[in-house]
């Protein structure tokens, strides 16, 4: 299983490139098992939303 360091890296990259199918599967599995990385994942989506909102301010 991938570790948290690898998982967070993929979460970030998923905002800049399309992940491969194996990457997506391994990441999804890790996120299911790991609350820290699952929180990290939600927070990354939130930061992107905040950056979009910042443009409109």
């Amino acid at each position: 299983m991938m570790n948290c360091k690898q998982a967070t890296r993929l979460v970030s990259q998923s905002q800049d490139r399309e992940l491969s199918l194996p990457e997506r599967i391994r990441l999804r599995f890790h996120l299911l098992m790991c609350s820290g990385c699952s929180n990290y994942n939600k927070q990354m989506s939130f930061i992107r939303k905040a950056m979009q909102k910042l443009r409109e301010r």
Binding site: N3, G36, C37, K42
Partner: peptide, 27 residues
């Protein structure tokens, strides 16, 4: 970034992301 993780690449207890609830409410 590395100092957030232990030798095996897992979150250190002190650095593990917490639950932010519904952060969109803060926008």
């Amino acid at each position: 970034n590395d100092d957030a993780f232990d030798g095996k690449g897992h979150w250190k207890k002190t650095h593990k992301p917490s639950d932010w609830g519904q952060p969109e409410n803060n926008l």
